[in-house]
């Protein structure tokens, strides 16, 4: 009973602490706006942003742009996740593959995402394919690197156990290497999807006629700052939702890897 109470109290304190900073900032922001300390053309009042958000979602415009962006992210991310785990596994399991692809990886990986966008537009045109490709690349790297790292850091002591039991290589791969790499692969997926989300907004700002990134870009051109902030808020919000969702999934599926 008593410990339950303290636990609850601790939980409430934790929640209060984690929302304290955003709340303080919004309050300061509201004061700054109402006191005329900042120009509303640069920073509209939180109230204005909220009502813009409301009217955008009521008219359905926000959902249309959001769902277009989310679909793009999913398409690119699924390709990137599959590609990253497959190629990562091949590189981790085969020294030859690692040698063949290793140099390519170290050349291509440092190229910033934004630099890819013009190249991909040249290759694939301005349509959906170039956007999918940008997101693919963005989510591919973290998944690839974390898959390789996860497989390579399999405990050699567990591998010894499998070896003295005369297990075949396929059993080693499926029953020892991959399960032990799963937490790391999952971390890669989480990093990959946040990177995919960053990429879609970037790509839509540079070349698109739909999506949340386009909406923000267009609102700035029309000098509608409240819309810009509403869009940015949505991006952050969806980003948090995705990450928290994946984290919850990871805790559920890989509960063995969490110490209580």
């Amino acid at each position: 009973m008593n410990t339950k109470n303290t636990n609850n109290r601790k939980k409430i304190t934790d929640i209060l602490l984690s929302v304290a900073a955003p709340v303080v900032i919004v309050v300061l922001w509201a004061f700054a706006a109402s006191g005329g300390l900042v120009r509303t053309a640069i920073l509209p009042a939180p109230k204005t942003v909220a009502s813009t958000l409301w009217s955008l979602s009521e008219s359905g415009k926000l959902w249309r742009d959001m769902s277009i962006s989310i679909l793009r992210v999913l398409r690119g991310f699924v390709c990137g996740a599959i590609g990253g785990t497959l190629i990562g596994s091949c590189m981790a399991f085969s020294k030859t593959v690692n040698r063949i692809l290793g140099t390519m990886v170290s050349i291509l990986r440092p190229i910033p995402m934004l630099a890819w966008i013009p190249i991909l537009i040249l290759w694939l045109g301005i349509g959906e394919n170039s956007k999918t490709a940008v997101i693919f690349i963005g989510s591919f790297w973290p998944v690839l690197l974390n898959t390789i790292h996860g497989i390579q850091s399999t405990d050699p002591k567990l591998l010894e156990v499998a070896r003295i039991l005369e297990k075949k290589r396929s059993v080693l791969i499926w029953k020892v290497y991959l399960p032990s790499a799963l937490p790391s692969i999952f971390t890669g997926l989480r990093l990959g999807i946040s990177s995919a989300w960053t990429c879609v907004v970037g790509a839509e700002m540079i070349a698109a006629t739909s999506g949340i990134g386009y909406m923000i870009h267009y609102a700035r051109e029309l000098a509608q700052p409240a819309r810009v902030y509403a869009g940015v808020f949505c991006i952050g919000f969806v980003g948090i939702l995705i990450d928290k969702g994946l984290l919850a999934l990871q805790k559920r599926l890989l509960s063995w890897s969490y110490t209580e």
Binding site: K157, L158, E160, V161, K175, V176, P179, S180, L182, L254, W256, S257
Partner: peptide, 9 residues
């Protein structure tokens, strides 16, 4: 072995 070396999953 000295350590149990069980598969944690």
């Amino acid at each position: 072995f000295q350590e149990a070396r069980l598969f944690p999953w």
